[in-house]
Structures are given as C-alpha cells and as structure tokens.
Design a protein around this nucleic acid. Structure first.
Length: 800
DNA sequence: AAAAAAC
C-alpha cells in the first residue's frame, strides 16, 4: 500500500482532522441537497470554507461560482453548467441558459479564448482534473446542446429518430476522441484545426439555434443525399490537392458568412462520415425511415410499452430464482470457505452451492484481506470471486455514510456493470446492503439520490464515477474494498488515467482486488502501483484450451464473405458475430437481416437504452444473432451462445480469447469460426498461435455447405427481416409523456431499465421497500426531507 | 487501429 500514489493527493491526508472532515461533509451534503432541489446553495459563511473543501479539482467551491465565473473561467463555470442537471428538469434547458445569461457570460469570460489558450497547455500538462474540466466544459456544452434537445424533445423525438439518437451520443464520444489527445493533433494540422475551431466558435450562435432545430432536421432526405454527394465530391477534391485550407479559405471568402455556416455544417457532417458510421448507421437502424413513418408511432408506442412490460416480467421471472427454497447442506462449498451464512444461503437459494475453481482459490485470500490479482477467463465465476468476500466483509457492518460507499466495483463497460449488479443484487439484499449502479448514459437523478441516501456497494464505470466525484456526490474515502474487473481493459490507454484518478481517491490501506483475463503491460503497471503485496491467482486455462470449444478458420474470398456469414449465422441457437468497427457491425447486421437472418448490432454508438435492449433481447432469445464490436467481447455473459463468428479477425490473440470466451461457457459446448480474407491468412495464423489454438485454415466458398454446417448453419432462404422487427427491439417501452416518469424514471435510461432493472429490485424487495417508495417524500430518510421523490425506479439504487 | 468510458 505504501506504493500507492498518495503523494499527489495531499487532500486525502488532511482528512484526519475530524473537524475539517465534518465541516466538509456537511457543506457537501448541503450542496448536494441543494442541487437535488435544483437550486444553488446558499453561502455558508466564509468563502474559504467551501473553497478549501473543494480542494481545487473541479473547483467545487459552491456558492461564489457565479460571480467568479466572469473572472476566472476555470472549473467554476463548468460546475455550474453541469450542475444544471436538475435545472434541466425544472426548466427548459436552452431558455434558462439564456435567461441566466449563460452564453453571454461565457462570451464575457472568454470561454473560447480560454479554450484556445488553454487547450494546448492543457494537453501539454495533462493535469487530470483540469483537463477534464476544460474538455468537459466545452464538450459538455456541445453535447448538452444535443442532449438537451433530446431531453426536451423528449421521448417522441427519440423514438422517431431511433438510431439518430445514437448518433448524438456517439458524437460525444467520437468528438472527444477526435479532439482529445494525440490523434487530433495528428490529423488536424494547424490550419484545419483552427478552421474547425473557428467554426465551433461560431457555434455559439449555432448553439443557440441549432439545438432547437437543427437545420438538417427540416430537410428532406433527398436533399441530404444530394448534399452528401456534394460533400463527397468536395472531399475528393480536397484529398486530391493538399490545399484544403487554401481551398476552404477561398471558398469562405467567396461565399461569405452564410457559406461558412453551410461549410461548417458540411464539415461537421464530413467529420462524422469520416468517423465512419453515421450515415450507414442511421440508415441501418432506420432512423429516417421511421421518422417518415411517424403516423405509425402512436399505436406502436402502446404496443411497445406492453412488449417491454412483458419482456420485463420475463426478465423478472428469469432472475427471480432466489425465491426457490433451498437449505444449506453440509457439503456446501461456500460455507466451508467461511462465508457469512446469509450469503451462503442466498447463494443456495439460487442453486449455487459449490465454488468454481477461481472462487475456491481466491476467496480465502480475499477474506483474509489480502490484495488480489486474479487472472481468469470471464465465465469462470469472477463476479462471485470478488463479490462474496467483499460482501462478507461488509456484512454486519453499519450502513455506509451518505456519499461514501464502502465498496467499489469498477468495470470497463456499462453492460458489465449491470451484469454485476444483477449477479450480486440478491446477495446484497440478503445481507441488507444498499447498492447502486453508477454509469454513463443513464439518468443522474437516481444515482445522485442513491448516493445521497448512502450506498454500501457502488458498481461503476469510470467516467460517470469521476463526474459524480467532481460533483461531490460521491466520496471514495471510506472505500474499504475496491474491485477492478476486466482490469486489462481498464489499463488500456485512455482508461488508465481515469482508473488511477479513481484509485488515488480510495484509501491506500483499503483492500484491492484486481481481475484480469490477461496480465500484460498495462495491468502490470496498475497492479504494481495499487496493489500491495498481492496474491496472484490464475485459472490456468485460457479459453482456447477449453476442450468444449471448437475452432475453425475459414479463408474466404471477399465477395463471398456476405453469403458465407449469412449461412453460418443462419442457425438454431445463439450466435455472436464480432466485427472490428461499429460501422462494420451495423453493416453486417443489416446484411444479415436482408438475408433473412434476424440480427441486431450492439456497439457503443447506440444509446444506452438501445444497447441494453438489444442485449436483453439477445439474452431473452428473441434475437438470435448479435452483431457486436468488441464492446461485447469482454465480460458479457449470455447463456447458451453456441457460436462465435468473427467476421473480422480480432486484432490480437487476447481479443481472440476474449471474443471466443463468449461461447463454451460453464462447460457448454461452443464453436468459434473466424473468417479471414486471403491477405489476412498469415496474421490470423500468428494470432491463433499466440492464442494457443491449433486449427488449419480451410478455404471456404459459399457452395461448401458441408463446411459451413460444421457450425450448424445453412443457407438462409427466408425473406428479409423487416426493419420493424428490429424496431420492436430497439424501441423503448414508453410511459408516454411526463406522466410516465413515475415508474421508469427519466427517458434516457428508461429503456435501459426496461429489461434490466426495471423493477427487479421492486419485485424482490417490494415488500421491503415498496412502502418507502410509495410513501414518497414524507417517507424519505430523516436527514433529507427534501430529496426528490421522483426516483421510483426501484433498481440501481440501494434498497432500504 | 478500434473500441470503450461523462456530460
């Protein structure tokens, strides 16, 4: 633990002063409460109190922000901007922004200059918080523009547009990628960059009118296509000559401002196209089509809600096994490990009585409080391997103080986080602990409210957690156990920084459990920095050596890829198809549907509701084929995936193992087929070697039915799958209008809830906390009579 | 190189 990097966080040390600590907490709580109520906290006496407490990052000092903002456009304004989450509810976003003079102020304080000035520096010094703030500041603004439009336009719009939304969401990420870091520096070349930026700046105006009604939203689709063609021509011209900048400038001068606007928008569009997926994505998810079919929507909405409810009930039923009566028998392996009896019996109720090898190996050490480096395939039971000791440690302890979770589980993807909550929820209820999922793409409200109430176990993805920490909604200084799941993924570039930031905020003497499928460079570093004297455990099996897994490599001609893919995927049983890119996933899914194989894409470009719904449909079985990017390669567990088809070969052997690990789980049989184009043969060969797979590539043509059938496939003969069938999956269940809020909470995550949490907590713990929930404000915890009662969504928040 | 992760 001495190794832990605490030096950079002197604030942490200072927390031995109880008085300070208390004052800080009180101020924080007060502020958080105020935020929850959508108003600004009152000044609390001297400035310095609040500001000291803020310990700089994010400039959390509450009150003076407003004024200071004009002077120093540092973290303060940002916080204001972001604090808007509540206000957003109360008031229409844009308007109030204008009311507040938000834009103006930003102009005054030279927001953009600030960004210009600082942008470079920041990138240079890369100070975590600052950079975040800044990036966030600008980015957030942009994103929020979109977002807010979505929020306001609400539900319907999102419905109408379907895939479109995804595009917005993705815009955020992508943009961040583009702008952030080295990449942007590389591609932009000063000029272009500056152009972009100028455009962005113009974007203030744009920010004002655009979100309200993006220009293109009013355009006919054909115009779009025309415009797109035009742009393609332009692109070609630009590529042809290296004088893009000159050309642009010239054009701008020639056509004047109006043209620049057009240019700007065009540019944005081009950008998006370059990024790969927008257009096709939208097309494949039928956003526009749906928009044009608006008339269908109203009745569909009702159906959809019913369908979702049904799906939800189904989900409930399938995750309600805990009801089964079971007694803890003498040979219960978990009892022998010394686990808390409530945990053991809760496990027994779900039919789990014997630990998997990794569990048997790690649990004793974890119970002993040691730091742990666990290496094993997902599917080997890692969730319980860390979950059980963690909960054992919490069992019988007093409830966590508000905002200060006792245990933290970090995962690289939202899906994985949900999955972990699903798995651990019954156990946490069994020992009467509150838990909360904290992840992006979902509403803040329940997360803030949950933290406000106090959460014992926090399951989180990094970004949102940091966000909440910056908002002072979460404080990690009471964390006793930290779990990093899929640590190899989180040690990757881009994630690592966030992980370190988070780990630095947890006490150095806490227990840390790190799980990773592979132990390579990044994980080494992370482990060395944050684990003290760790015990290493590995289940020696790599996925490839699972003897129930069968591997094939098919060498295919590029032209044959599509029919062969369809023939392989057209099979009984669940199939996961992996693609390298989001665009590829969308395209393959579309092609499969065109060929009569029902498939849907899953990737990070979809909005969270869609992601959840797609995955849920796949789990439920209503969707037989999932076409995914590597978002699904790690950790995601779906029963009975009998085939993994890699349309694009994985990037390296680790990815191969991760991907193939989606099948042949828990002793099931599974087939892994990798398609390789001729020029990829060598690469795939190396990759398989590294993965320890022995398979001779076979040359396969569409006629080779016998070969294709090795995976149980057959040439599909069905009609193309209509878009509507996909829509049925993607479309959120909808509590229409504001009235619907009660049950599912806000729109953004409602879909996500649809199948996932929905009321799982409600259902199980209904008898326990239902009253509380219904009781609304009057039954809120004493200490917080003002907490919003709106979160009636039972899951993802602590029960209590 | 792509994907993922906050707004």
């Amino acid at each position: 633990m001495a190794k832990s990097v605490s030096a950079g966080h002197p604030g942490k040390k200072s927390r031995h002063t109880p008085a300070q600590k208390k004052a800080a907490r009180e101020a924080r709580e007060k502020q958080a409460r105020a935020q929850l109520k959508g108003r600004r906290p009152r000044p609390e006496g001297r400035y310095s109190d609040t500001r000291d407490r803020g310990d700089a990052p994010g400039g959390r000092g509450g009150y003076p922000r407003r004024d200071e903002r004009a002077d120093d456009r540092g973290g303060y304004p940002r916080r204001d901007d972001r604090g808007g989450y509540q206000k957003r509810d109360d008031r229409g976003g844009y308007q109030s922004r204008d009311d507040r003079g938000g834009y103006q102020k930003r102009d005054d304080r030279g927001g953009f200059q600030g960004r210009d000035d600082r942008g470079y520096q920041r990138r240079d010094d890369r100070g975590g918080y600052q950079k975040r703030d800044d990036r966030g500041g600008f980015q957030g603004r942009d994103d929020r523009g979109y977002q807010r439009r979505d929020d306001r336009g609400g539900y319907q719009k999102r419905d109408d547009r379907g895939g479109y939304q995804g595009r917005d969401d993705r815009g955020g990420y992508q943009r961040r990628d583009d702008r952030g870091g080295y990449q942007r520096r590389d591609d932009r070349g000063g000029y272009q960059r500056r152009n972009d930026r100028r455009d962005d700046r113009g974007g203030f105006q744009r920010g004002d009118d655009r979100p309200a009604r993006p220009r293109w939203a009013d355009e006919d689709r054909s115009d779009w296509r025309q415009e797109r063609r035009d742009r393609e021509v332009r692109e070609q011209r630009q590529q042809g000559s290296r004088s893009e900048h000159t050309w642009r400038t010239h054009r701008d001068e020639r056509d004047g401002r109006e043209a620049r606007r057009g240019h700007h928008e065009g540019r944005g569009w081009e950008d998006r196209r370059h990024r790969g997926d927008r257009f096709d994505d939208r097309r494949s998810t039928g956003g526009f089509d749906r928009r044009n079919r608006g008339a269908d929507l109203a009745p569909d909405g009702e159906q959809e809600r019913e369908a979702a409810e049904a799906a939800y009930q189904e989900h409930l039923a399938s995750s309600t096994k805990e009801d089964a009566t079971a007694t803890v028998t003498e040979d219960n392996g978990f009892a022998r490990l010394g686990l808390h009896e409530d945990l053991v019996s809760a496990l027994a109720r779900t039919g789990i009585t014997q630990p998997f090898p990794i569990q048997a190996a790690t649990i004793p050490d974890a119970l002993a409080g040691k730091d742990l480096l666990g290496r094993g395939q997902t599917g080997s039971g890692k969730t319980m391997a860390f979950g059980l000791p963690m909960l054992h440690r919490l069992a019988g302890r007093p409830r966590a103080v508000p905002h200060r979770p006792r245990a933290l589980i970090m995962t690289p993807t939202r899906e994985l986080a949900m999955q972990i909550v699903d798995a651990l929820a019954p156990l946490m209820r069994a020992i009467d602990k509150r838990f909360l999922l904290v992840a992006g793409g979902m509403s803040y409200t329940p997360q803030l409210a949950g933290l406000e109430r106090g959460v014992d176990v926090l399951v989180a993805t990094p970004g949102r957690l940091i966000d909440l920490i910056e908002r002072s909604a979460a404080d990690l200084s009471d964390v006793e156990v930290t779990v990093l799941d899929e640590a190899d993924h989180m040690a990757e570039m881009g994630f690592a920084e966030a992980m370190k930031q988070i780990l630095d905020l947890t006490p150095t003497d806490g227990q840390r459990l790190l799980f990773s499928a592979t132990l390579d460079h990044g994980v080494d570093q992370l482990a060395a920095a944050y684990l003290s004297d760790p015990v290493t455990h590995s289940t020696n099996d790599v996925a490839a050596s699972v003897d129930t897994m069968e591997h094939h490599v098919f060498l295919v001609h590029p032209h044959h890829k599509k029919p062969i893919t369809a023939a392989i995927a057209n099979r009984p049983g669940r199939t996961v198809v992996f693609c390298r890119t989001k665009l590829g996933a969308d395209r393959v899914a579309l092609q499969l549907r065109d060929s009569g194989v029902f498939a849907a894409a899953l990737h990070g470009g979809l909005n969270q509701a869609q992601r959840t719904r797609v995955l849920d449909a796949f789990k439920k079985g209503s969707l037989p084929v999932l076409v995914a990017t590597d978002v699904a390669a790690r950790g995601i567990h779906v029963d009975d995936v009998s085939l993994v088809l890699q349309v694009d070969p994985p990037a390296d052997h680790k990815d191969y193992l991760h991907r193939s690990g989606r099948t042949a789980r828990a002793g099931d049989e599974g087939v892994v087929v990798t398609l390789a184009l001729p020029h990829q043969k060598k690469q795939v060969g190396r990759l398989l070697d590294a993965a320890g797979v022995q398979t001779d590539p076979q040359v396969v043509a569409p006629e080779d039915v016998a070969v294709i059938e090795t995976a149980g496939g057959s040439v599909p003969e069905a009609d193309p799958i209509p878009q509507s069938q996909l829509d049925d999956i993607l479309r959120p269940p909808r509590p229409q209008g504001r009235g619907g809020r009660g049950r599912y909470g806000d729109r953004d995550s409602r879909g996500g809830r649809g199948g996932y949490g929905g009321g799982r907590g409600g259902q199980r713990s209904g008898s326990r906390d239902g009253g509380d929930r219904r009781g609304g404000p009057s039954r809120r915890p004493r200490r917080d009579p003002d907490a919003p009662a709106r979160d009636t969504r039972p899951d993802w928040r602590p029960r209590g």
